[in-house]
């Protein structure tokens, strides 16, 4: 076991939580991420087999067991799993899919905030141009949020979303979420 202590994207050793009336923002760090891109003239069967579910179509994400995958481009997906059980997620996927896909570790490229509560839509409409009220569980979209390219994933229709953004700007992203929450609530 190595002796390097990890820090969260916000620079701490525990996840930050911010509570508002009707909204909760929770920093999430227990995830591993890997991008999977289908190579030319290959079938996605191996990727599907790894996920044990059909691959999501544009604008969608799917979850099965501990894994979830979202569509991020033509024949490209971002696969997510709990970090504590899948630290080597990219390696695991690569072993499963072989030459049929290119797999790249993305775990520490991103930060993630779960935004939940009845005021979600009110807060998101001050942040990004997606039609948050029209999203339902299974939808995911990429959007600019405080000038940052982020994924917004609907975890539960109307009241639970995940914002996945660039790790180096985690503080700015959280600041934007909090500023909007305070503005609305």
């Amino acid at each position: 076991m190595h002796n390097l202590n990890p820090i969260t994207p916000l620079g701490g050793d525990t996840c930050r939580i911010h509570d508002f009336d009707g909204l909760k923002i929770v920093e999430q760090t227990n995830f591993a991420l890997a991008s999977v891109a289908l190579r030319h003239n290959h079938s996605p069967a191996a990727i599907q087999a790894f996920l044990d579910t059909s691959l999501p179509t544009p604008g969608k994400w799917v979850a099965h067991a501990h894994l979830n995958a979202m569509w991020i481009g033509p024949d490209q997906w971002l696969v997510q799993a709990p970090y504590d059980t899948h630290e080597l997620l990219a390696t695991q996927i690569k072993m499963a899919v072989g030459d049929s896909a290119s797999v790249t570790e993305q775990t520490d490229g991103w930060c993630q905030f779960e935004v939940s509560g009845s005021r979600c839509a009110d807060v998101f409409e001050r942040l990004c141009n997606i039609d948050i009220r029209a999203m339902s569980r299974g939808d995911v979209t990429r959007t600019l949020l405080h000038h940052l390219g982020c994924f917004v994933r609907c975890e539960n229709t109307s009241d639970r979303f995940c914002v996945i953004g660039p790790r180096s700007s985690a503080e700015s992203l959280l600041h934007a979420l909090i500023a909007s929450a305070k503005s609305v609530i």
Binding site: Q76, Q106, G109
Partner: peptide, 15 residues
């Protein structure tokens, strides 16, 4: 487009 190549940024993933 005929080349079999896939790209993704990993700038933030590695210190």
């Amino acid at each position: 487009p005929d080349l079999d190549v896939q790209l993704i940024s990993t700038t933030e993933a590695w210190a």
